[in-house]
Write a protein that binds this DNA or RNA. Structure first.
Lengths: 204, 204
DNA sequence: AACCATGTTGTCACAGTGTGCCATAAGTCA
DNA sequence: TGACTTATGGCACACTGTGACAACATGGTT
């Protein structure tokens, strides 16, 4: 990895950290791109070369999480029930965060805290989730051997999986430690599995 | 209803229709507020007094749909299982559109067509749905006699209900007549009910 | 009818977002 | 070193969204 790339990554993280600090200190809405750029000593123009917009900052781990889910899904056995495979993919995202650097984990928790007080960002977050849902639906449709444009059950499986994830991630809000999030997510997955009929995701 | 209110409503619909026409003709992104305002012969400033932003236009029926759902929910018997009640609320939204004026139904279908080709708007739509989900969760928590901040199942019930709605509404896309939407929605509801364990939404 | 309180509109100024363009500086490789 | 690629900064610009104020329309009152 060349100097150029390392420097870019460093700048990217510097922007991220400066932005998070400003957001948590003075609020998301009242923080401008100009302020963030100023704190990292780059021009506002350059900011937009790293992040397409301010919201994109808050979606930091969504891109990564989506990739983890898709990778995990690809590795799961083909005969595993789709929802089960999705639950594994979901757990993999959390595992990945935990096994990352302390700095990354800290950013993850700060972002979560940021979402807590900003319905607007929660909205953005679920909107980003809709994109993930589309991509997951493609994969699940392939696994099930159906056309994603024809099969409602495929979309229902993915939507239920994402719902399970959101419920585990968002609700209820307590201290917000990594351990708690993992515990809540496990609870949510277990709960969802108790709600669904055995074999519900195998029919077609 | 005074002249003043009638005039406002007329302007509101005029903006809506002009905007829809422009969107479908030249695309959503490439239509500016200035153009819409020009087509209705109002100032751009006035546009923002009717709709908080351009996206708000595309969320036209969300506000109304949310109210219908909440009203329907309030009328459902208290001992009805939560998910069943939510499915009734969901059907009520479509019934309401069908029993409205032909103009309103036409706007509804145009909006749906608009969403089809704009992932950005689909994102906005599900973000708006997240707000509805929060409000529904309050009601369902009250029905179940639990604290919405403590009970994951409440949120799972609502999230599954909204998922069912989205799947029925969005997928798969065909001719897009009112009849088809209703049929797809009925299919989706039936499918969801087959996927879930009987009595899953009664536990606590 | 004249009057006033209230609501609606247009105009202006302004802050902020996001993009295209081009010159310049920095990293890369021969 | 010199030739190249890529990142950056600065500039102008279009668009969004809001606050403030003046002009006007409406509805009710005397």
């Amino acid at each position: 990895m060349g100097l150029r790339e390392r420097k870019k990554e460093k700048t990217r993280l510097a922007i991220m950290d400066a932005a998070l600090e400003l957001f948590l200190e003075q609020g998301y809405e009242s923080t401008t791109v100009e302020q963030i750029a100023g704190a990292v000593e780059i021009s506002p123009r350059t900011f937009f070369r790293y992040f397409t917009n301010k919201d994109h900052l808050a979606m930091w781990f969504h891109d990564h999480g989506e990739e983890i889910m898709l990778e995990t899904l690809a590795e799961r056995p083909a005969d595993e029930p789709p929802f089960t495979a999705l639950m594994h993919a979901l757990r993999a995202v959390l595992t990945d965060v935990q096994s990352s650097t302390p700095d990354d984990a800290s950013r993850f928790l700060k972002l979560r805290k940021l979402l807590d007080g900003n319905p607007h960002l929660v909205g953005k977050s679920v909107a980003r989730g809709a994109r993930t849902e589309r991509r997951l639906a493609e994969v699940i449709a392939a696994r099930r051997g159906v056309d994603p444009d024809e099969d409602q059950l495929t979309h229902l499986i993915v939507a239920f999986a994402m719902s399970t994830m959101r419920v585990g991630f968002e609700c209820p809000r307590r201290d917000g430690t990594m351990e708690e999030i993992q515990r809540r997510m496990a609870e949510s997955i277990e709960l969802a599995e108790r709600c669904l009929r055995p074999g519900w995701d195998l029919r077609h």
